[in-house]
Design a protein around this nucleic acid. Sequence first.
RNA 1: GGUCGCGUGGCCGAGUGGCUAGGCAGAGGUCUGCAAAACCUCGUACAGCGGUUCGAAUCCGCUCGCGACCUCCA
Length: 497
Amino acid sequence: MKAHQLKLYNTLSRQKEDFAPINPPFVGMYVCGPTVYGDAHLGHGRPAITFDTVNRYLTHLGYRVRYVRNITDVGHLTGDADEGEDKIAKKAKLEQLEPMEVAQQYTDTYHRDMALLNTWKPSIEPRATGHIPEQIALVEAILNEGLAYVVNGSVYFDVLAYNQRYTYGKLSGRVLDELMTGSRDLDGQGEKRNAVDFALWKNASSEHLMKWPSPWGLGFPGWHLECTAMSSKYLGTQFDIHGGGMDLLFPHHECEIAQGNACNHQDPAKYWMHNNMITINGQKMGKSLGNFITLQELFTGKHPLLEQAYSPMTIRYFILTAQYRSTLDFSNEALRAAQKGYKKIINGLRIARSMDFTANAEIALDDEQVQQVEASITAAYRAMDDDFNTAMAIGHLFNLLKKINSIFTGQLQSASLGEEVFSKMLATYITFVEEILGLVEEKGEVQDGLLDLLLSQYSEAKTARNYAKVDEIRLGLKSMGFVVKDMKDRIDWAYEE
RNA sequence: GGUCGCGUGGCCGAGUGGCUAGGCAGAGGUCUGCAAAACCUCGUACAGCGGUUCGAAUCCGCUCGCGACCUCCA
């Protein structure tokens, strides 16, 4: 394989940088996973698919990726950081379940949805509740550094003290002075010395459901701390890539950097990657706005905003058609277009898998065709090398697909490309679609054998010029989601777009 | 109010100094019993106004519009 200089946009430097792993060929990647107190929505799909694609492409390039994605099952509070309830515990009270039942239930549905989206499982999927001792140890380390303080059984990170030795706000571009004066609301500051301080460990009230003993009494860990605990445990105190949604950039990731520096005197991650939001009517889709559509609702079409159901692969394709750092606007029209585009790609995949090179000494190499194919192959890789530009890569795959379809229908001869280029074209197309972009066929209920039988009857009826029967079979197949492709020398089927 | 980002043809969405993105929708054509699929051709788009430049959607400035973060959100 030719050398790839992969570039990725590092939020820390606000520019694209050459990717150089700390310890090649190994790559450590940590991505913030879900807080499991509700079904995953379209917004959860984006980072899952984005970083799955990063994982896939890095793996394709020969890197050995350790992909860690956590499950947050404690510590994530609603509303104000001091006064809010634990999200899981709140849901548990509402549904009269154990908190861990809630966490289990939504962890399961998350896994189900992620599998449907054909994302690779993380190498390690740690849970916050499984890492309480690690989190307590981190709190102690930060206290020992003099960068945290204890109040009434809670421990807070002392951002001002930290900022004297390090720079707080370097990831989000925030200046501490402005944060101090720009705080909109100083109420609810409670025990904290400063509004910018954040909880490392929280004292648990008597009615609190999830709590653990600690040197400071019964309590539970702060949200930001879990990621530091789990990432450093499984990837080391400094690893290559930290990913997550842009909405986590501040304060969550900023706090992770502060915690990492406080404990280990170095930034936890070399590259910070952030996917942008999915919007709906131009506004961010999110829990707080209540304008989210869950993945299950998309798959079943059961939501007032949905005109139809959209399959998991349609959703995956939809997300991949936008660069991950751009916002992506949801609409039925856009999803319908994605559905058609996906089916076109997949029909091409079926064809590409079945095609063989046909040698023909009478057909000369067509330099222009060869050049076009090679340019598209190169460009597809260049797009991925340029900060995982899947949208652009897909554009070039469509260019390859035109050649593939032309050869399949006999409008172009494989011999005019030459065997080497022809094979490279098919291999590139198949590799990109299946392996890198993770787009796979969604099998319908119809068995291949039945399909073949119907097509052979179709063929017979056609030879007999029994057009009534031909039309009948055609309609029948259409109702099952397939279309017949009549070509000069044979008949094939495709997924209906 | 502070910080950051965006505004591309009917729709979605790449592109960041000169070179056709692509998909969907639409028009015409080839093929076909008719279709479909596939392929070919067609849109001369870059919020507005100025500026820099031989040349700008792409750089700079201003204006307008939209959004994100600053509080839990992927």
